[in-house]
Amino acid sequence: MSLNDLKPGQSGKVISVAGQGAIRRRLLDLGIRSGETIKMIKAAPLKDPLEISLGNGHISIRRSEAALIEIKVVS
C-alpha cells in the first residue's frame, strides 16, 4: 500500500520510495526513506495535500508524491 492509503492517526513504516531525480531526492532529503515511520495526521480540506508526521516535524505532501511511497501499516 502507499502512503495515500494511511488513515488519519495511523502510522506506517516506509518500505521503498519510487520516483526519480528531483522528486525522489527531495523526499529522501526530507527524511522520507525506507525504515522511517510516518504518521498520517490529516488531509487538507480538499483532500489533497496530506499532512504527515515524520521524525520531529510535520510535512505537507501531495497525493501524487505520496503515491510513490510504499509503506506497511504499523500499530
Binding site: L27, I32, G57, H58, I59, S60
Partner: peptide
Amino acid sequence: GDSLPFVMELPP
C-alpha cells in the same frame, strides 16, 4: 517542465 515536488514543512 518538472516542477519541484510540493513537499513542504509545516513548522510549529
